[in-house]
């Protein structure tokens, strides 16, 4: 899933369940572990376990003990206490996946998020996204199956929402994790640039260097900032005399139409 080709079967829930089992039982032989999830009596269909295992290994959550065919946890139990902690762990380490198809697809989707959002209705379904994304980056080599797999992790990790198989870019939950993973202080006013620096390198998956240089937040990140502001998690500010103004995607109806200069992290809601 997090190497070259994304696999639909390796959904976050199954990866989490695998971690939970290893947390409970300790290291287990792979075959024994497989039958836990796919008991023999149900395994008349293709086994999914291998794909789930691979995803968990690629995410660094579990590891394979060499020559023993045994799997064990590779993270502290606090990292897999809940879906949220697992998500925060993955997001904290997301840049480790930077070569993966998932990472590259996500980055292209985030940077081009306004185009994806505005794409003609006939191309809005996730399975049609390769038609658009492969044009945006021809090295992605995406097909329908890849995108169906991508959607599970893209929504889980907080890069957007699905509405009737239409991906709505909004990186609010991802950035919220990045904030909590960072050492950003609560109730302290940060100029946007500083704020974003604190979220690096994780935030690089949704914000390009070019955008940073141009002081421009793409649609997914603009949505994230606005949504977190609306949810009371951060407070956006516009201060007249700041030299460093950042432009969000223009949204006339929102409280912050475009320009922001500072952010305050208010805390968890």
């Amino acid at each position: 899933m997090f190497d070259n080709t994304m696999k639909t079967e390796a959904i976050p829930e199954r990866v989490f369940a695998l971690c939970q089992q290893l947390l409970l039982s300790g290291p287990l032989k792979e075959e024994e572990l497989r039958t836990k999830f796919e008991p023999e009596c149900f395994s008349d269909k293709t086994a999914y376990f291998g794909m789930v295992r691979d995803a968990a290994i690629q995410l660094g959550l579990i590891t394979n003990i060499p020559d023993d065919n045994t799997l064990e946890l590779n993270v502290d139990k606090k990292e897999i206490k809940s879906y949220e902690t697992m998500r925060m762990y993955i997001n904290r380490n997301i840049s480790r996946l930077s070569l993966s198809q998932f990472y590259r697809t996500t980055k292209v989707s985030m940077i081009n998020s306004y185009d994806l959002f505005s794409v003609d209705k006939d191309y809005q379904n996730v399975s049609k996204m390769p038609l658009t994304l492969n044009k945006m980056d021809e090295n992605l080599n995406l097909d329908e199956g890849c995108m169906r797999a991508w959607r599970f992790w893209a929504t889980f990790l907080g890069f957007g929402y699905l509405h009737d198989m239409f991906f709505m870019p909004n990186a609010s939950n991802f950035i919220y994790d990045c904030i909590r993973n960072s050492n950003i202080s609560k109730n302290k006013e940060y100029p946007i640039y500083d704020f974003i620096q604190h979220l690096s390198p994780s935030i690089d998956i949704c914000l390009s260097e070019k955008e940073k240089n141009e002081r421009r937040l793409n649609f997914a990140v603009s949505n994230a900032f606005r949504a977190l502001h609306d949810r009371g998690i951060i407070k956006l500010k516009y201060t007249n005399d700041r030299q460093d103004e950042w432009n969000m995607i223009e949204m006339p109806m929102h409280e912050f139409t475009s320009i922001i200069t500072d952010v305050v992290y208010l805390g968890e809601k």
Partner: peptide, 23 residues
């Protein structure tokens, strides 16, 4: 939007819905 978010200020309404759903 004819069952899509492609309409004037559709991005604002989509964001409003996303935020509301989280809440």
């Amino acid at each position: 939007g004819n069952n899509s978010w492609n309409f004037d200020n559709g991005d604002y309404y989509a964001l409003a819905v996303e935020t509301w759903a989280e809440q």
